[in-house]
């Protein structure tokens, strides 16, 4: 029974590792900033799962709270400001000011 569990865990780890690389590839080389930021937050959560699998619960907590949480919020709010600046610019250019 232990053998089966270990094999299935190994498959799970393999899948998790592949997903991480896939998400990172999409996040870095895909199109669209908002999509990249969302994928980055997903990557943060996958990473905290990885830290649990590697036997580091403290790091999993820190990654989830800081890596996915605070950094994700920071990126989203920065994206919002960027978009507002872009529309601001367009409005200024539009008005020819």
């Amino acid at each position: 029974m232990a053998e089966v569990i270990r094999a299935s865990l190994l498959i799970f780890d393999g899948l998790l590792a592949l997903t991480l690389v896939g998400v990172a590839w999409q996040l870095l080389f895909g199109q669209g900033l908002f999509r990249s930021v969302l994928l980055f937050i997903a990557l943060g959560l996958l990473l905290s799962l990885t830290w649990v699998r590697l036997g580091a619960p403290d790091v999993a907590l820190a990654e989830a709270a800081i890596g996915a949480g605070v950094t994700g919020a920071l990126l989203l709010v920065t994206l919002g400001r960027l978009r507002r600046m872009a529309t601001g610019h367009a409005r200024d250019r539009g008005k020819g000011s």
């Binding site: 403290d58 907590l61 820190a62 709270a65 800081i66 949480g69 605070v70 919020a73």
Partner: peptide
């Protein structure tokens, strides 16, 4: 146990945000 200043601080920061 597992926890500490940084994890606690980050959760408090999340509530602040």
């Amino acid at each position: 146990g597992s926890g500490g200043a940084f994890q606690g601080g980050a959760v408090l920061a999340a509530s602040g945000v």
